[in-house]
Nucleic acid binder design. Structure first.
Lengths: 212, 212
DNA sequence: GAGATTATGGCAGCCGCTGACACTCGACAA
DNA sequence: TTGTCGAGTGTCAGCGGCTGCCATAATCTC
């Protein structure tokens, strides 16, 4: 039962453990006393390192709060890139996001309990500073997804259609995510169905007239 | 030639002038030495007030950098709300944004020179912290636009179609805005045409298959 | 094991931001 | 005009996020 850890040096293993300890301690403290109510010194002390060391692992307090989000984003991007080239763009996005959800759940659990993460997610939506940083990252993810769609379809970078499609897709995912945070439970299956249902509304939403 | 100023008290006029002086000084300093290279103390000193007073006018350094953006956002929202109820949703958004552009140009010029604002706009795109705050505000604008569209169409808040439409629209506007910043000139007419052309791509972008 | 490399801690300091308090000056009535 | 009231301002002290610098301690390489 040799994992990757046993093959790497002691140094890297220690770094990895320190990093994960910081993420876990941070999320626990955030859950207890809120984001602004928690100082970096407290997080560092809880993980038993100096404040200076904290800033060697994370660019800032925001960064540690969004650490898990970053993982999720890279999972989604990878899943889209893995879709067969024959699929139409929207189908690829939809399939990727629906399929990779289980993997994401596991990836989260390997760092923090799912329930704790849900609390963090809600905190991100409610804290202006964190929401801003989160949206900026999502914009970056949109850029990458746009590039990937354009590549799949063999389109030049000037073609606006990939960007528009990704924007609509991303808007739907933001909305779905918001509702997931409200639910507070980790009901993955129900969430997947809701995601699919919302994505099916993209076509109708752009119809000329909804009243007919 | 009595303007609004002459009808309000001296006190309010002074406040207004101080606020605008802070915005103008801030933008000039940002243009000269960048966002991070400019301290709040410098801005306050340039506007001849204390640092403490600066923070009575603006919630933070971000806030003064995005002051003009906020004006633009409220213009757009107002323009959408003013569209006749008979127009289909996307038409209303498109018409509003195309039509209100001149008014926005004038509103900007009344506070800072247009050329200086263009520099500020580029700075926002390039400075992570500012971009994040900007995107958060755009998300709020999306919320308001979504509500307005749902209201116009008489739809319940759960219907995802307004949100999706606004997301696609907003994605297009972000992209157009990005290119406007790159151009660096204040060519409003060309910009309006480009906006219209991009918005016309929303339909095609959602087609099942682009290759046909 | 010696030396090179890398992670860590402690310190000093800048900057964004806030609360508390005193002061100035415009607003408004007597 | 004058006196009072309150809004706007400046000053000061202080917290918390964040960084550069240097010394120390841990790991890696040979």
């Amino acid at each position: 039962m040799h994992t990757i850890e046993s093959t790497t040096g002691l140094r890297e293993r220690k770094k990895r453990r320190t990093r994960e300890a910081l993420v876990r301690c941070a999320q626990e403290l955030f859950a207890l006393q809120g984001y602004e109510g928690t100082t970096v010194d407290e997080i560092a002390a809880a993980a038993d390192v100096s404040q200076r060391t904290f800033f060697r692992y994370f660019a800032g307090k925001e960064d540690v709060a969004l650490a898990v989000q970053r993982m999720i984003e890279s999972h989604i991007l990878a899943a889209v890139c893995a879709r067969p080239a024959a699929e139409p763009p929207l189908t690829a996005l939809r399939s990727a996001v629906v399929e990779c959800w289980d993997g994401i759940g596991e990836a989260i659990e390997s760092v923090v309990p799912l329930e704790l993460y849900v609390r963090t997610y809600r905190m991100i939506q409610e804290t202006p500073q964190l929401l801003a940083a989160h949206l900026r990252r999502l914009a970056e993810l949109e850029d990458r997804l746009t590039d990937e769609i354009a590549r799949r379809e063999g389109l030049p970078a000037e073609d606006p259609r990939p960007r528009i499609l990704v924007a609509a897709f991303s808007g739907v995912m933001r909305e779905v995510g918001k509702r997931w945070g409200d639910l507070l439970d980790g009901d993955m299956e129900g969430f997947r169905q809701r995601t699919a249902a919302y994505l099916d509304q993209i076509g109708p939403a752009l119809a000329e007239n909804w009243r007919s």
